[in-house]
């Protein structure tokens, strides 16, 4: 990479470096957040369409709209519930693995 930077402008000051670093980090964070939200919206759309629009008509009926509104709330709730449960389980397993590795033969028990 060094050959590319040859002839580039003077090195950044520490403050500029810090600023650029934070720029990159924020960019990455926001891209990940957007991707996550898009995925959630796509999945929600699929699931709630299947659940609520059983027989597509000329337009969305009020009851279909009500169903979609409830469904999106429920899907988000399910996502949060599952996220919490999954993270808790992974944490427990990791702890058990660490204990097993540290102590004697606790393998397979958690």
């Amino acid at each position: 990479m060094s050959f590319l930077s040859r002839g580039s402008s003077t090195p950044l000051t520490p403050a500029e470096t810090q600023q650029r670093k934070e720029q990159v980090m924020n960019e990455v964070r926001s891209q990940l957040a957007v991707a996550n939200a898009q995925e959630l919206i796509n999945k929600m759309g699929d699931k709630c369409f299947v659940k609520c629009i059983t027989k597509p008509g000329d337009s969305l009926s009020p009851s279909e709209e009500g169903c979609i509104a409830r469904c999106t709330e429920r899907y988000l709730e399910a996502f949060n519930v599952i996220s919490k449960q999954y993270v808790a389980r992974v944490g427990r397993e990791r702890e058990a693995a660490a204990t097993a590795a540290g102590g004697l033969g606790g393998e397979g028990l958690n």
């Binding site: 990940l32 995925e39 899907y75 996502f79 599952i82 996220s83």
Partner: peptide, 15 residues
């Protein structure tokens, strides 16, 4: 991101 992807998959499946 991988963790989030796993949770999306699981939410879909469990739903």
């Amino acid at each position: 991101a991988k963790l989030q992807a796993t949770i999306h998959d699981m939410t879909s499946m469990c739903w």
